[in-house]
C-alpha cells in the first residue's frame, strides 16, 4: 500500500526577536526548519518505510529565498519539496497560510498530512486544525504514538488528564509532539543526494485575505524584580520553609 504523505514544515528564524516597528517577528536573520517539524518528517519517512513505498513530499509556505531550509528534510529522505511563495503572502497569518497550504496540498492529494504540533517562532499551534478544516479532513493533534493498519491510523493523543487513543481513517491530518520519535541523522551520501532533489517553488497566493489579525501594540515582558535573596548562614533551609509555609505552598 504505497502512501503519499505530505509533511508541512516551517522555516523559523534561528534567533527569535520581535521587530518593535512592525510588531512582527524579525525575519532578517538566518532561518532553519522548525525543530518539531523534524519529528514530523521522521514520522512520515518511517510510515513510508513501513508501508513499503510511496512518496514523502515536504510542503511549506515561505519566501522563496528560504528554500534551502527545506534541504534537511530532503536529506533525511523526503522525495521532494513544494514551497508556496508569493509577495502577497507577506504578513500572512493563520488565515492566509492555511489557505495557501490547503491549496498546495490539494494539488498533491496526500493520504496523510503530517505537522509538527507547534512552531518555535510565534508559538502558533493551530495551523494543522485550520488546514484540516479547509481540506475537510479529520485531525488528530498532540500525537505521541501512532500505528497504521491498512488505511486506519490509530493514534495516542496527549491530553491534560493523561492520554487517549483515537482512530482516524485516511486521508487525515495529524500533528505530532516532539516525543513521538528521534529524528534520524542524514548520512553524508543523503546530504549530497538532497542537493539534487527538487524543490518546486510555487508562486501563487490564495484568493481572499491573507491576514485576519493586526498587531496593535507590543510590550516587552516586564523585567523581573529582585525577589528575596536568602544568604545561607546555615539556616537558609528554615527561612525557605517559612517562606513556603507562609504562602500556603506547604
Amino acid at each position: 500500500m504505497a502512501l503519499t504523505i505530505a509533511v508541512c514544515v516551517k522555516p523559523v528564524p534561528v534567533v527569535t526577536r520581535l521587530d518593535p516597528g512592525t510588531g512582527r517577528l524579525d525575519r532578517s536573520g538566518a532561518h532553519r526548519m522548525n525543530s518539531v517539524d523534524e519529528h514530523a518528517v521522521e514520522a512520515a519517512l518511517a510510515l513510508r518505510e513501513s508501508a513499503l513505498g510511496g512518496e514523502v513530499v515536504v510542503v511549506s509556505v515561505a519566501p522563496g529565498e528560504l528554500a534551502d531550509t527545506l534541504r534537511p528534510a530532503l536529506a533525511m529522505g523526503a522525495d521532494r519539496a513544494v514551497l508556496v511563495s508569493s509577495p502577497q503572502l507577506e504578513g500572512a497569518d493563520l488565515l492566509g497560510t492555511s489557505a495557501a497550504l490547503a491549496a498546495a496540498l490539494s494539488g498533491i492529494g496526500p493520504d496523510l498530512v503530517v505537522f509538527g504540533s507547534w512552531s518555535g517562532d510565534g508559538n502558533g499551534a493551530m495551523l494543522w486544525a485550520a488546514v484540516g478544516e479547509r481540506l475537510g479532513l479529520p485531525v488528530a493533534s498532540r500525537v505521541v504514538d501512532y500505528v497504521l493498519r491498512d488505511r486506519r491510523l490509530t493514534v495516542t493523543r496527549q491530553i491534560e488528564q493523561g492520554s487517549e487513543v483515537v482512530e482516524v481513517e485516511l486521508p487525515a491530518v495529524v500533528a505530532l509532539s516532539g516525543e513521538v520519535n528521534v529524528p534520524r541523522y542524514p548520512s553524508f551520501k543523503d546530504v549530497v543526494a538532497a542537493k539534487k532533489k527538487p524543490i518546486d517553488v510555487v508562486e501563487t497566493a490564495p484568493d481572499g485575505p491573507v491576514a485576519g489579525t493586526t498587531v496593535l501594540s507590543l510590550e516587552p515582558a516586564p523585567v523581573r524584580t529582585g525577589g528575596i535573596v536568602v544568604e545561607d548562614d546555615g539556616h537558609a533551609h528554615e527561612r525557605l520553609l517559612e517562606f513556603l509555609i507562609e504562602r500556603g505552598v506547604l
Binding site: G29, F188, K189
Partner: peptide, 15 residues
Amino acid sequence: VRRLGVEVWTGSDVE
C-alpha cells in the same frame, strides 16, 4: 554558526 545560517550537518561522515 547557527545564527549566521551556516548549514550544519551533524552525524555525517564525509567521503
